[in-house]
Design a protein around this nucleic acid. Structure first.
Lengths: 198, 198
DNA sequence: CGATAAAGTGCCACAGTGTGGCGTTTGCTC
DNA sequence: GAGCAAACGCCACACTGTGGCACTTTATCG
């Protein structure tokens, strides 16, 4: 479970409420008409929020669409930070993701597939996501100390690539229980991939 | 050498000339003031071309900045298409890139590092590049037939990741002769990366 | 050579995202 | 309840990208 701390002040609760409304409504609207075809104004009108306020809450239109993705990686980084890192790092990275997936709640498993479909349908959103992933990769590297920087960098790239491959296979059905299985399979295929012959 | 076919018609030659002027001037201007801080109008004014014409030549502002990147991958796909694919595919992908690098001319080796710096300084441009790379990866997959789709997909991801790692190490100095060496080293480190221990 | 079609271009107006300034409201604190 | 700071809404603007339409240049064919 993600720990949701209810802020004491009314001001912050209000802020969170509009934030949540923006996230939910955005997912609905973008899902109906597509990310690119939905003007931001449509979202603002429905939530009754001014453009100025929106951009004080989110950095961009992409940002609000990717909340589910960011929640996952935030959790992932938390887990990875707390986990004991011993043995093969590939196993550590995989284990951290499996734990993160367990911590996500039901609503997340509803929103995440919707988000993936948005990304698949919009090149712009996809590019934004890939760039965001690169930032996450840098943070992952920061959580692991070691002197083999190149090996580490490569391994992180490989792991994230494996994750994206797993998502691709998960996308059609999006059965929650399937995702760990697919990720395990993808990760255990990495060695075979390197020695793949024509 | 890239084969440059001079089109017979005057019309096409003119078109190519403004296209080239846009590419060169863009690289200069973006390099001076940064990609994000250079309004497209500054470029259009200098080349004396209307916005309408620019967007008939390039899809976006990002497009004109990434010409060098696209030239490389175009060459790469050509090489990969013509090469004999036998033995370990990782070696094939590497060999194709080494050949492609040999085919690039001197001017490309001047422009490519400049482009890399633009990308490093602009998250938006970086995202655009990553998305473009994903498209290239799909094309690579299309050039290789085989039934192990997951292995293939993963290997391509790994290879491109290795390429990007090599570029990162190449970026500071950008000595042309160094790039093949760095790429070879990165590729030969891939196996060690998978079994990296904490 | 002259007429005609077609390709290319420029100009104008517009949609959409994102930002800065500034007055006003709202919630917090005493 | 009064003062204060945070948040908000409104307005205007910069920038990228697109559509429409008139105009110029080039190719082509009689």
């Amino acid at each position: 479970m993600t720990i949701v701390e209810q802020p004491a002040t009314l001001r912050e609760r209000k802020k969170l409420r509009t934030r949540q409304a923006l996230i939910d409504t955005a997912l609905t609207l973008f899902g109906e008409h597509g990310f690119d075809n939905t003007p931001l104004d449509a979202l603002l009108e429905q939530v009754e929020v001014s453009r100025r306020t929106f951009f004080r809450t989110f950095r961009s239109k992409e940002d609000v669409a990717l909340t589910a993705v960011k929640q996952l990686w935030d959790t992932y980084l938390e887990v990875l930070d707390g986990i004991q890192k011993s043995g093969p790092l590939a196993d550590v990275f995989l284990a951290a993701m499996l734990t993160a997936l367990e911590r996500m709640d039901e609503d997340w498993y509803r929103r995440f597939p919707l988000t993936l479909r948005l990304i698949a349908d919009s090149p712009a959103l996809d590019g934004y996501t890939l760039r965001y992933c690169a930032e996450v990769q840098a943070k992952i590297a920061g959580l692991v100390d070691g002197q083999n920087r190149l090996e580490l960098r490569l391994l992180i790239e490989f792991f994230v690539a494996a994750w994206r491959c797993a998502l691709d296979e998960w996308l059609p059905a999006c059965t929650p229980g399937e995702l760990p299985t697919l990720l395990r399979r993808t990760c255990s295929t990495m060695n075979a991939a390197l020695s793949l012959k024509a």
